[in-house]
């Protein structure tokens, strides 16, 4: 998974901001094999507001690690190595089309995935119906985008059985957890940093 490095600078670019940019460029050159994306942004950008950055120069890694001042190349390299994307769990308990829950869950999953998070969409209770193949409509297209972007779809085995759905009736590339609560507790406690239930 790639690492996003944002460099926030004053306008016009001052001496310290230039120094930080040069350090970042040096790190970039020394790490061409890594999947690094660098953006140079002004302080009055929406990105700065989103990150809560008010002082330049400022370096932000993956939207989370925020360092003010001019870290050296070694420090920047370390920050990149330590940058771990958040693992997010979205637990969907509602069926599609009966409420906005499924749509919200899928849109949130897509958005989190786009910002570099590891995302698991866990379908439980009536949520399992989302994975039923053959549905037509934009929601399924969004779900497919999520899966194509590397998002994981997990389905409660217990609720699948309760709904009378067979694993064969599901979309491709979904993981059925035969022991629902054992799997869910491990995901919540050990794997995901953040969990939301919809």
């Amino acid at each position: 998974m790639g690492t996003l490095i944002e460099v926030f600078r004053n306008t016009p670019v001052g001496r310290n901001c230039r120094a930080l940019s040069q350090n970042v460029a040096q790190v970039l050159q020394a790490n061409v094999e890594k999947d690094l994306e660098v953006r140079f942004l002004p302080l009055d950008s929406p990105e700065a507001e989103a990150r809560g950055v008010e002082i330049a120069p400022c370096l932000v890694v993956n939207g989370r690690t925020i360092v003010e001042g001019v870290p050296g190349p070694d420090e920047i390299t370390r920050l990149i190595e330590e940058a771990v994307p958040t693992a997010m769990g979205i637990i969907l308990t509602r069926g599609p089309y009966s409420s906005g829950g499924a749509e919200d869950a899928v849109e949130m999953a897509v958005a989190a995935r786009e910002s570099g998070d590891e995302v698991g969409l866990f379908l439980i209770s009536d949520g399992v119906w989302l994975a039923h193949k053959g549905q037509i409509g934009p929601l399924m297209g969004r779900l497919a985008s999520f899966q194509e972007a590397g998002g994981e779809v997990l389905v409660s085995g217990e609720h699948l059985v309760a709904a009378g759905l067979s694993p064969e009736s599901l979309l491709e590339n979904v993981t059925v957890l035969s022991d629902t609560y054992d799997g869910l507790v491990d995901l919540v406690m050990e794997r995901w940093d953040k969990v939301i239930i919809l």
Partner: peptide
């Protein structure tokens, strides 16, 4: 059921 399983673990 999540509470019970988490406790068990």
């Amino acid at each position: 059921r999540v509470a019970l399983k988490a406790r068990e673990k």
